[in-house]
Nucleic acid binder design. Structure first.
Lengths: 138, 138
DNA sequence: GTAACTGCAAAATATTTGCATCCTT
DNA sequence: AAGGATGCAAATATTTTGCAGTTAC
């Protein structure tokens, strides 16, 4: 039983071909993936709709999380274990998007420093997106 | 000559009704606005397309900036003066999105603390989005 | 066998483009 | 007067929904 199958089992999802392959894509990818990437990279051609629904399911289960970007696009990345505890996903990640190659990295092991908020604002989650040049593009 | 006209002049844009009204909306709004908000709130009904093009123009000039959100939506907020220096926009803002009322605040005067990146990553800009409960919803 | 997942079709939304007309400078 | 901005129509692209057939458990 391979890794992706274990993940699906862990979250109580049926083991299907599309789910396995999409998960494999995430594991193989260094960075985050957009819907379009998955559509392009998957050898078997899944239906667009299946990809939408699979991503939605993964999101709800906390297997992946979405990365906010300033333009329209939504990116998804695999969550590390600590990231989803009994469905309660906390998005306290640092993401890095390369200005050159556009790859989005998910830097799970970087902690977000405390940010001072004005009076009356109560923080729950925080996301940081840093843009710059990645290690492969210098 | 009112404030919004001055802004348009400053950036070398023609003074038109739609641009003035959309700028007014931003000034009147406490938080950030989505395309849909503008469409809804503008008394005169501009064409959808005009709003798209106006926002695009404002973005390019650095009059507004976009706020990344984890879902599909894109939000826009007025830039403060320091925010756009000769077309070079730097997005080092802290944004706060309320989980209750969904209003997005642009906290320009909060500085982003240094984040330690892994070897080889060179930061240029950083955006922080914090979610929680805003001052009006407690 | 049953519940859940997928694919297809189609609807609903969102965004972009071309072009003629109108407005700002 | 000239160039840019707008509105309309239409082309694209994106996302959602319903349903019938298939697959996993």
């Amino acid at each position: 039983m391979d890794g992706v199958t274990l993940i699906l089992k862990k979250y109580g999802l049926a083991i299907t071909e599309s789910r396995k392959q999409i998960l494999e894509l995430f594991k193989a990818s260094e960075g985050a993936l957009a819907h379009a990437d998955i559509e392009k990279k998957s050898s078997a051609n899944f239906d667009r709709v299946t990809i939408y629904r699979t991503l939605q399911t993964f999101l709800e289960k906390g297997i992946i999380h979405s990365i906010p970007t300033a333009d329209n696009s939504v990116l998804y990345a695999l969550c590390k274990d600590e990231c989803a505890i009994t469905g309660h996903h906390h998005d306290n990640h640092v993401h890095f998007v390369c200005n050159q190659c556009s790859v989005a990295y998910c830097l799970d092991n970087i902690t977000i420093p405390e940010v001072k908020l004005p009076e009356g604002f109560e923080p729950k989650e925080a996301a940081v997106v840093i843009k710059g040049i990645c290690k492969n593009c210098r």
